[in-house]
Amino acid sequence: MYNRRGMPMNPYLAGSLAGALSVLSTWFTGKYFGASTSFVRSAGFVEKIFSPEKVAQMPYFMKEIPQIDWQFMFVIGIFLGSLVSSLFTKTYRVQWVPITWR
Rank of each mutant, 00 (worst) to 15 (best):
Gln67Lys: 14
Gly44Lys: 10
Gly81Trp: 06
Ser16His: 00
Gly15Trp: 02
Val46Lys: 05
Ala35Met: 12
Thr26Phe: 12
Gln71Lys: 14
Phe50His: 04
Val55Gly: 13
Ser25Gln: 13
Gly44Glu: 06
Gln57Leu: 10
Lys63Asp: 15
Ser25Trp: 11
Met7Leu: 08
Thr37Ile: 14
Phe28Trp: 10
Ser51Gln: 09
Ser25Ile: 05
Phe45Pro: 13
Val40Thr: 12
Ala20Glu: 07
Phe28Cys: 01
Phe72Glu: 12
Ser82Thr: 13
Pro59Asn: 11
Gly44Gln: 12
Ser42Thr: 07
Val46Ala: 13
Ile68Met: 11
Glu47Gly: 09
Met58Leu: 03
Gly19Arg: 05
Phe79His: 15
Phe50Thr: 13
Ala43Pro: 07
Arg41Lys: 14
Met73Phe: 10
Lys31Ile: 01
Thr37Trp: 14
Asn10His: 01
Phe28Ser: 02
Ser82Met: 07
Phe74Ile: 08
Ile78Glu: 12
Pro52Tyr: 11
Phe61Ile: 03
Gly81Asn: 08
Ile65Gln: 15
Ile76Tyr: 09
Ser51Trp: 06
Leu17Ile: 00
Gly81Arg: 06
Pro8Trp: 00
Phe74Leu: 15
Gly6Phe: 02
Thr26Glu: 13
Lys31Ser: 07
Val75Glu: 03
Thr29Phe: 02
Gly44Ala: 06
Gly30Val: 01
Tyr32Pro: 08
Leu83Val: 06
Ile65His: 15
Leu24Ser: 03
Lys54His: 09
Arg5Phe: 06
Gln71Glu: 15
Asp69Trp: 05
Ala35Tyr: 11
Met62Ala: 13
Met9Lys: 08
Phe28Leu: 07
Ser42Phe: 10
Trp27Pro: 02
Phe72Ile: 10
Leu24Gln: 09
Ser85Val: 03
Leu80Phe: 14
Phe39Gly: 05
Pro11Met: 00
Phe79Ser: 08
Trp70Asp: 14
Tyr60His: 15
Lys31Arg: 12
Ile68Lys: 09
Ser38Ala: 10
Gly6Lys: 00
Arg41Cys: 14
Arg4Pro: 04
Ala14Asp: 00
Glu47Asp: 13
Tyr60Leu: 10
Leu83Lys: 11
Asp69Ile: 00
Phe50Lys: 05
Pro66Val: 06
Arg5Thr: 07
Asn3Met: 04
Ser16Arg: 09
Leu24Lys: 03
Pro66Asn: 00
Met7Tyr: 06
